[in-house]
Simulated assay, not measured.
Amino acid sequence: MKKTLKFLIIIILISPKTFAIGTYKKGDVLYNWKNPGINLRIKPNEKSEIITILPFGERLFVVEENLKKNKFSIQEIAPVVKYDSINEGFNFRGFQIKGFWVKVKTNSGETGYVFDGYLSKLKPDFELNETYFDAKFKLTKSSSKKFPKSISDNAYSKTSFYKNGSYIIQNRSDYVGHEHFFIPNISLEEGYLLVLKSRPYVLQLHKSSGDNQTNYQYDAKELSFTTSLEAISITKITYKSIKGIEIVFEGWD
């Protein structure tokens, strides 16, 4: 474990900080990660006239210098109180996406303000899978191990480290599977947007019931979703020089 953490620290230190919506500046390129789209407005407030609706993946250029002056937030998931079969209460305080209004210019030349909580330096083709990571990031170290059947049928573990500081850890068997994706220098909100792209059903809290219902937990450092077939967690990781988000998918039969 100590060797793994030491290796992670080294690759983070030599990696360029290409992510993190919080560090953008004038001239940077950001992408819209809200589906189906976000509003481009004349002024930096939610009551201002809408110029147009920008679709998912729209490339935007930051054109203002005095950034992060106009705060704004959106209640992405509403608070809810539920009760189980033995009358025990469950309180979910909800999840807000917090950010600022930023002045941007579109590819077509339109200029206006958008809420940066749905923007990211991550390109919209970003995928949470090994194939994408192998194609986009340089693999620096990989190891795998199969376990005897006496422990678990067809069980194996694989770990992959990449030059940009990312890693993937996979643990699977016939009955359960875990996949850990670490992406450096991104926010919890960006991690949420990545999950939402790959698992859009996680927002079905108010549209389903019983075994199909999605349950949520949020404590500022971790946002998690649980269904009858899968658990997903998005966690802030801070360990010395290591900062980023770890996304874990856990599925079972």
Rank of each mutant, 00 (worst) to 15 (best):
T111C: 14
N129F: 03
L122H: 00
Y118N: 01
K121Q: 14
Y162I: 11
Y118T: 00
K145V: 01
V114T: 02
K149T: 12
L128Q: 03
D153G: 05
K149H: 08
E130F: 04
L122C: 01
Y132G: 02
T159Q: 15
F126L: 05
S142R: 12
K138H: 12
G112P: 06
S144C: 02
K149D: 12
A135C: 08
D134M: 15
N107W: 09
D134W: 03
P148N: 15
S144L: 04
Y113P: 13
Y162C: 11
K141V: 10
S142Q: 13
F115Y: 10
N129G: 07
F161Q: 03
S152M: 13
K136H: 05
L139D: 04
P148V: 14
P124E: 09
N154Q: 09
G109H: 04
I151C: 05
K158S: 12
E110Y: 11
P148K: 14
S143W: 13
T140G: 09
A135G: 10
S150V: 13
N129L: 06
E127N: 11
K158R: 14
E127T: 15
F115K: 09
F126W: 05
T106K: 02
L122A: 00
D116V: 00
D134R: 04
D116W: 00
K141I: 14
S120V: 04
K121A: 08
D125L: 03
K146V: 08
L122S: 00
G109K: 06
N154H: 07
A135T: 12
K149I: 07
A155F: 07
P148I: 11
G109D: 06
G165P: 02
F115P: 03
S142I: 12
L122R: 00
K123L: 04
K121W: 13
Y156C: 04
T106L: 02
G112K: 05
F126H: 05
K146N: 13
S120D: 05
S142C: 11
N154K: 11
L139T: 08
K121P: 09
S142H: 07
N129A: 05
F133G: 07
G165F: 07
K163T: 04
K121F: 10
G109R: 05
N129Y: 01
T111G: 10
K136W: 03
G109T: 06
K123M: 04
F137L: 15
G165M: 04
S152V: 05
F147Q: 10
T140Q: 08
N154E: 15
T140D: 11
K121L: 14
S160D: 05
S144V: 01
F133M: 15
F115H: 09
K158L: 11
F115I: 03
